[in-house]
Write a protein that binds this DNA or RNA. Structure first.
Lengths: 343, 343
DNA sequence: GTGAAAGCGCTAACAC
DNA sequence: GTGTTAGCGCTTTCAC
């Protein structure tokens, strides 16, 4: 008695799934009322609410978010872009972000920008096309065109893991320069003089070791041994980097590695060559990866609270999406040097 | 001269962004033609194609996938569910999956099911609500209700990292039982007799070590020392598990760990106590994590090609989404024991 | 508190 | 090859 005759005229499209209309009909209310019962239960009478809920159960209805997103221009989808998932660095952030968003009914879309700029732009377009309620960037958008498109899209953006001077929009991170300086001072204070750096060839670790170098120079140390390894960093490159360092005639008594994995490589290679850590060589990592505390010797490293970054990013996005203007758009989560046995 | 007067009557809704209509108007074609120019360029005349492309550039148009999804009932969104991102086990799979899907214009949605069943069901609903073109499960859906809803939704499902006897739909994995047997035989063939297992307390590693135990029993070994550690496994729990093993009076000359991280913990603790590996203790890991080859001693482990699992899962989903029926719904990617120094 | 009407931006189906 | 029409399933707006 409903749309059966209409169906004869036109072939059925759509998914064939239960719709809100079906629920509404069963509950004997208007579709709009059913919608309200699900979204703002407080604005609906208890009896109607009960009937609708029953109908939902009876039909096995699951809302179609795509339709809702189209009508309301709120997708409750948040995109996260990482350079790559390979390094473990961003994992805690992504994990916390996913969880925090889920708590508010938001879902995470993941994109890997890789190291090719053209892919990054394509990814950005794919993301914007989905009209997410927010975009979380771990890593930077390189192309000016990409940055421009992001701004034009009017989607809230959170940049993370950095404290760039000109944020696109919102920002949660820490100062890589401050890390570099702090580690240099830490090592200097312990009497180390022949400093070295093993750094991934990415922008941020470059900035850390530049600051490290500058701080060392201020203390009268001219020479800094630097080995650059390709990102993402691995245990293997840590091993071979130490080998390279040891070949240098000047010698080395402290290494600052741009990741804990690299540091583990250094530890491994040092042991293989009978080099005493920290006696002959102090080793400092970066990230305070879960395994750092339990290494032999326990790894001195720079602790970054990746989870906090993810949670703050989620807060930023959700606040914006719910229409709350965020007062402070930049959050510095800081860092700390965890002083363990290796240095 | 177009809809300006209409706008006066009703307040403007929508996002205010450039729509396909705007592009079509500028290119002087019907919206449908503009749509075709973007989706099936081959079915449009070269001149029209050029005009549309120009209009896209001029306006900075980015398609609204949500609208497209609603109209076409194809979201080009694929959901992936992992128990947690914490362990590094599924990373290569997720990474390969994300990349392979992106190559075909699909985007990944990530969900963490955690270890709570109610959260899993909520997650499933959130996912189904987005009407993804496919769902990739790493780990199992536990609740019968959840499995039921998944099937009812009619969304292609790929279960991974396992070879369950009753797949929901499609499957790509390997046999955990076969792994357990193979490792037991490997160790037995090398003359090890006092076998031990350090296993995460998840379903699969339980099945690996059950098979391991059975194979050992077949060879006349009655006793098997087992230490169970909470998932996700860590280096620390590897260290303390070895400690516990060493306390047993029977002694141990070989350990099969349910992850490489656990094995690294065992290696670390063994060294701290002056225990020779592989002389006094053979150590076998699981996963062939990137660092395994470069440990000291290099870790003998079970290699699983996580990337291949991800790529095959992507192939399954994309094939289905494009309407190609997949002939073989189950793919066994197998495994291999990488024979290195630690055993 | 509830309902009717009018789209959100796109594409399937059918003509021409 | 191109255009017209009619929705996809939901929510906004406005009236009651």
């Amino acid at each position: 008695m409903d749309d059966a005759p209409a169906r004869a005229r036109r072939p059925r499209r759509g998914s064939g799934a239960v719709t809100l209309h079906d629920v509404a009909r069963l509950a004997q209310v208007a579709p709009m009322t059913a919608s309200r019962a699900l979204n703002t239960p407080a604005r609906v009478s208890p009896e109607v609410l009960a009937r609708v809920r029953e109908a939902v159960k009876a039909t096995g209805y699951v809302r179609n978010h795509a339709a809702g997103a189209l009508a309301s221009t709120r997708s409750r989808l948040v995109a996260a872009v990482v350079p790559t998932l390979a390094g473990p660095v961003f994992l805690p952030t992504i994990q916390a972000l996913t969880a925090a968003l889920a708590d508010h009914g938001y879902q995470l879309m993941l994109g890997q920008s890789g190291y090719i700029d053209s892919r990054e732009d394509a990814l950005l377009d794919a993301i914007i096309g989905r009209r997410p309620d927010g975009i979380v960037l771990t890593g930077t958008v390189h192309s000016p065109d990409g940055r421009q498109r992001l701004q034009a899209a009017g989607i809230p953006v959170v940049e993370t893991w950095d404290l760039s001077p000109e944020p696109l929009d919102m920002l949660v991170g820490f100062s890589h320069e401050a890390v570099g300086r702090a580690v240099a001072q830490f090592l200097l204070a312990r009497g180390r003089r022949r400093l070295a750096v093993i750094a991934g060839d990415d922008e941020r670790s470059r900035r850390r070791h530049e600051a490290f170098r500058a701080a060392a120079a201020e203390h009268g140390l001219a020479e800094l041994a630097v080995v650059t390894v390709p990102a993402p960093t691995t245990l293997r490159s840590g091993r071979s980097a130490l080998l390279e360092l040891l070949r240098r005639p000047a010698g080395v008594d402290a290494v600052f590695c741009s990741s804990d994995l690299l540091a583990l490589g250094v530890l491994t290679e040092a042991r293989a060559r009978g080099l005493d850590v920290p006696g002959q060589l102090a080793v400092v990592g970066f990230g305070d990866h879960e395994f750092a505390a339990d290494l032999e010797p326990a790894l001195t490293t720079v602790r970054i609270d990746g989870g906090a970054i993810g949670r703050q990013a989620a807060r930023f996005i959700v606040d914006r999406a719910e229409g709350r203007e965020v007062a402070e758009r930049v959050v510095d989560v800081g860092f700390s040097i965890v002083d363990r046995a290796s240095a």
